[in-house]
């Protein structure tokens, strides 16, 4: 071998100082990393470990029943939900909304929901040829098999043990996958926080034993909130005495918003 030909590997081994530099660098890195990451982590450490004091999610499993025959379309639920959950007034986003169905004598179906039903419904035009008409309250179905949770890339939307589908505001990256995935149109992107938002069943209320705001203000008992699995609850009773249906059952999302007296035309 021609000694004048320089072999870089050999040259390196003949210059030990360079090797020490790299090792030191790696060492320094491994020391620095925890410090740098520690800064990131400290605020997270401050978060408390668990939720409400004596609330045990494993003892509950929530759902909502909706009696279409009782809804008078007053829109109080939409108002209360917006207030309780700081849903922005404009643009029009809703955690829950009310749809008016108009089925004409020729079979044509019209659905409207002006401003989610928040201000009630204007009188219908051409009353004469209506075969039937009714109101249908809608909201997140809190599916047992939620497509929105499946598509979330970061685990920011999730199903709790007590059967509620929630969004982690601090972890959501606002990618909108869940909004696309929801077959019920129940999700929206918060225009200020840039995170996905949705009905929480008023989780902050139900852990305190209160009912969701929409149920609190519903004047006719068209919304029934409660435990599905226990025998003696209003919801269990509602489900025993009514033939309940869910929306879009063929999608296999296993919704937990149970509708009674639902017309075949409702989508």
């Amino acid at each position: 071998m021609n000694p004048s030909e320089r072999d870089p590997a050999r040259e390196e081994s003949t210059r030990p100082t360079q090797e020490v530099d790299r090792r030191e660098f790696l060492k320094a890195c491994s020391l620095l990393a925890p410090i740098i990451l520690g800064v990131v982590r400290v605020p997270l450490l401050n978060a408390q470990e668990s939720e409400g004091d004596d609330y045990d999610p494993s003892e509950h499993f929530y759902a909502m029943g909706i009696d279409v025959d009782k809804c008078i379309g007053c829109g109080q639920c939409v108002v209360a939900c917006g207030t309780e959950n700081d849903v922005p007034d404009e643009p029009y986003f809703f955690n829950t909304w009310v749809e008016r169905y108009l089925i004409r004598t020729d079979g044509e179906v019209e659905v409207d929901s002006p401003n989610g039903g928040m201000e009630g419904f204007p009188p219908t035009t051409a009353e004469g040829d209506i075969r039937r008409s009714f109101f249908v309250p809608k909201l997140c179905n809190h599916c047992a098999n939620p497509p929105c949770v499946q598509v979330c890339p970061v685990g920011a939307t999730f199903k709790t043990e007590d059967g509620v589908v929630l969004v982690d505001d601090e972890y959501c990256i606002g990618c909108r996958y869940c909004i696309q995935a929801c077959p019920y149109g129940a999700r929206w992107l918060d225009p200020e926080k840039h995170v996905a938002a949705k009905c929480t069943f008023c989780y902050h209320r139900i852990v305190e034993g209160l009912v969701p705001a929409c149920v609190e203000v519903c004047p006719t008992g068209a919304r029934i909130f409660g435990e599905v699995e226990r025998r003696a609850t209003p919801l269990a009773r509602f489900m025993r005495f009514n033939e309940v249906q869910v929306l879009k059952p063929h999608l296999n999302t296993e919704p937990k918003a149970y509708y009674a007296n639902l017309d075949g035309e409702v989508r």
Binding site: S50, D168, D169, Y171, H204, E208
Partner: peptide
């Protein structure tokens, strides 16, 4: 999911 998210959600102010 982040279990601590529940605390934030539960801490939401009631109206």
């Amino acid at each position: 999911y982040r279990a601590a998210a529940l605390d934030t959600i539960v801490a939401h102010e009631k109206k």
